[in-house]
Design a binder for these strands. Structure first.
Length: 423
RNA sequence: GGAGAAAUGGCAGAGCGGUCGAAUGCGGCAGUCUUGAAAACUGUUGAGGGUCAUACCUCCGGGGGUUCGAAUCCCUCUUUCUCCGCCA
């Protein structure tokens, strides 16, 4: 959520930047600024009335104390109309504030200057590529075939228990998953991230805080009995830990990591691209969240990118990094880098991580602030990134590491899996 | 699920109809002393809105009510604690 004072100060620049997203902000900005004026003038009126009635109340108290009941009763009569007026005005003020809030919720984050223009994923800009794409033998298989061949993942069984998109991992498949989770968490804690375990269900307030509500309502599983949502990403509980907090500068940066399953309804997706592990309703992910001072956020974003690179390098997997174009940028993000892993058997790139800087957009919704050197209260910047999303890493790993003898586990993982080959 | 108690500033904790945005202690910050640090002493220290700055307004778990006036009384919800029941 953008701040009204920033809209006021940078209206033209914001309009210009939001055009990159095909978002015409001019009109909505005007309306917000107008409503803000209205809100303020209403408040001035309200404050005056409240001030007067506070004064009268004090006088009445004094008069009663002095035994001048008659005078007091005269003053009492004066307060009745003040009460009515203040009630009216406070309703009016709340209505206006709600309207402003509602409008602010509709506006996406302002893209960073470095975000390229573009309509959709085809316009994303590749900025880095690393790792050799292996030459596979003629018998090479896509991961869903490999999963079946080595009895690693059972998609049909998940179907029986829950439905499509809820696979059952078995034997070495399950162990490989657990190994990756441990490996990722170890890498993250080595880099200074604090490991946490968080709830997998969140309340409405949390979902609003990180921006899943109101605009992504249909994508979360909703537990209606208790009005809770299954998390689509652990970014939600992690970032909400600090909701409404006023931090001291020396508490920053806050670096958190956690492993959770993620639940996404992915309504309307189907077809070849969602086959196997490519797109699931439940999947595992290890997440990074950073809460930092505004002046540090872009440096931290770079660090996050370097950190994720390091992991992929160790896993010896071919990947590339994309700078998302304005059209493909998430609603809450100012700048996002996507990591894609090359799936050799499918001959396509799979998104396995996304590292974003939200600047103050989430922090403003969440009201996460800190006191800077001069004791000024400022909104923090929040960032997150996956390190990494498990299923597609497994998909890429199975496909790229397959040989005629079986699947060769990358060396760094062997201490975690306890085996070198899946045969 | 049943019975009882409670929720106050960063923390602990008083206040139980007007003088309360709130005593006191701890913590934080600034200063005195010290070669430096600690201790001691002195001062300062909640949040939001509003203003050029004051003034002023709002906030004592959330919501509603009584009253001229509510942290204080009433209703309701939530949470926490204790006891009981059920249970991984």
């Amino acid at each position: 959520m953008l701040e009204v004072k920033n809209i006021k100060a940078h209206k033209d620049a914001y309009c210009e930047a939001l055009k990159k997203r095909n978002f015409e902000a001019e009109e909505i900005f005007e309306e917000i600024l107008h409503l803000d004026e209205e809100r303020r003038s209403t408040q001035v009126q309200l404050d005056e009335i409240l001030s007067e009635s506070n004064n009268l109340s004090k006088q009445i108290g004094q008069l009663f104390k002095n035994g001048e009941a008659e005078k007091a009763n005269q003053l009492k009569e004066k307060t009745t109309h003040l009460k009515d007026d203040s009630k009216q005005l406070s309703i009016q003020m709340n209505t206006t504030s709600d309207k402003i809030q509602e409008l602010l919720f509709q506006i996406p984050n302002v893209p960073h200057d470095s975000v390229p223009t573009g309509q959709d994923e085809a316009d994303n800009v590749e900025i880095f590529k690393e790792g050799d794409i292996p030459e596979l033998t003629k018998n090479a298989l896509p991961h869903w075939e490999l999963a079946k061949k080595y009895d690693l993942i059972d998609f049909e069984l998940g179907n029986k228990i829950t439905g499509a998109g809820f696979p059952v991992f078995k034997g070495k498949g399950a162990r490989l998953q657990r190994a990756l989770i441990s490996y990722f968490l170890d890498k993250n804690t080595e880099a200074g991230y604090n490991e946490l375990q968080v709830p997998h269900l969140v309340n409405e307030e949390s979902a609003y805080g990180t921006g899943q509500l109101p605009d992504k309502e249909g994508q979360m599983y909703h537990v209606t009995g208790d009005n809770l949502y299954l998390i689509p990403t652990s970014e939600v509980p992690l970032t909400n830990i600090y909701r409404q907090d006023l931090l001291n500068a020396n508490q920053l940066p806050i670096q958190m990591t956690t492993y959770t399953p993620c639940f996404r309804r992915e309504a309307g997706s189907y077809g070849a691209h969602v086959r196997g592990l490519n797109r699931l309703h439940q999947f595992d992910k290890v997440e990074l969240v950073n809460i930092v001072k505004p002046e540090d956020s872009y440096e931290v974003l770079d660090q996050m990118v370097e950190h994720i690179k390091g992991i992929l390098r160790e896993l010896e997997l071919p990947y590339r990094i994309l700078r998302l174009c304005a059209g493909d940028l998430g609603f809450t993000s100012a700048l996002t880098f996507d990591f894609e892993l090359y799936s050799t058997a499918q001959e396509r790139w799979l998104e396995i991580s996304s590292a974003s800087n939200f600047e103050t957009f989430q922090a403003n919704r969440l009201k996460i602030r800190y006191k800077d050197k001069n004791n000024k209260k400022k909104l923090v910047h929040t960032l997150n990134g996956s390190s990494l999303a498990l299923p597609r890493v497994i998909a890429g790993l199975l496909e790229n590491c397959q040989t005629d003898e079986g699947i060769k586990i990358p060396e760094v993982l062997v201490p975690y899996t306890g085996f070198e080959w899946i045969k």
